[in-house]
Simulated assay, not measured.
Amino acid sequence: MHHAVQAAVARFPDRGHTIEELARTDESFLSLREDLAEAQAALARWERSDTPVMTARCAEYRELVRDLAAELDRHSQG
């Protein structure tokens, strides 16, 4: 399973089958799940950072992850 699909299924485990189906058939859903996976990875990198901007960047990426997850949620509901 592609890492972006895994990220989406991990976020919404009760919709695993729907997410996998959308990943195979819906181009916009593919883009959303890839964006979510990339944002989650970036957040994880910033959380390990010791730079002065770490707190601000973590807040930005948390918000982005939350927004992408909400959009993915709406998309996977139909």
Rank of each mutant, 00 (worst) to 15 (best):
S76F: 05
A59W: 02
A70K: 06
R66T: 01
E47I: 01
L68T: 01
T51R: 11
H75F: 09
H75Y: 11
A44E: 13
D73I: 00
A59V: 03
E71I: 06
A44N: 04
D67G: 12
R62K: 04
A59P: 00
L68S: 04
R62S: 00
E71C: 07
R45E: 15
T51K: 12
V53L: 15
M54F: 07
R62F: 01
R57S: 02
C58D: 13
S49C: 03
R57E: 12
V65Y: 05
W46K: 06
R57P: 00
A37D: 08
P52L: 11
V65H: 06
S76M: 09
V65C: 10
L64I: 09
D67F: 12
R62L: 03
R66K: 04
A44T: 08
E38Y: 06
L36K: 05
A37C: 08
A42F: 09
R74M: 03
A39M: 01
S49W: 03
Q77V: 01
A59G: 05
V65P: 00
A56W: 11
A69Y: 00
Y61I: 05
R57H: 03
H75W: 12
E60P: 03
A59T: 05
E38T: 06
A70W: 02
A59Y: 03
A37F: 09
E38S: 09
V65S: 01
A41P: 00
A56Y: 10
R74I: 00
S76Q: 07
S76C: 10
R45H: 07
D73V: 01
H75N: 10
A56I: 10
D67Q: 15
A59L: 04
D73H: 02
L64A: 11
E38L: 11
Q77T: 02
D35S: 11
T55M: 14
H75L: 11
L64H: 06
W46I: 02
A59H: 06
R48P: 08
H75I: 06
M54C: 12
A70V: 01
A39T: 01
E34D: 14
E71K: 14
A42W: 11
D67C: 09
A42S: 14
V53G: 09
Y61C: 05
E63M: 04
R62I: 01
R45C: 09
V53M: 12
D73N: 08
L36V: 06
Q77G: 01
R45Q: 08
D67L: 14
A41V: 08
L64G: 03
L64C: 07
E63R: 07
E63Q: 11
D67T: 10
P52K: 10
S49K: 04
A69G: 04
P52C: 07
R62Y: 05
L68E: 05
T51E: 15
C58V: 15
W46S: 05
R74E: 02
A70L: 07
A41Y: 04
Y61E: 13
A69F: 00
A42R: 13
P52E: 15
W46F: 02
Q40L: 10
A44L: 09
L68R: 04
T55G: 15
D73W: 00
T51H: 12
A69M: 06
L64S: 11
L43N: 06
A56Q: 11
L64R: 11
A41C: 08
R74H: 00
D73Y: 08
S76Y: 07
R66E: 13
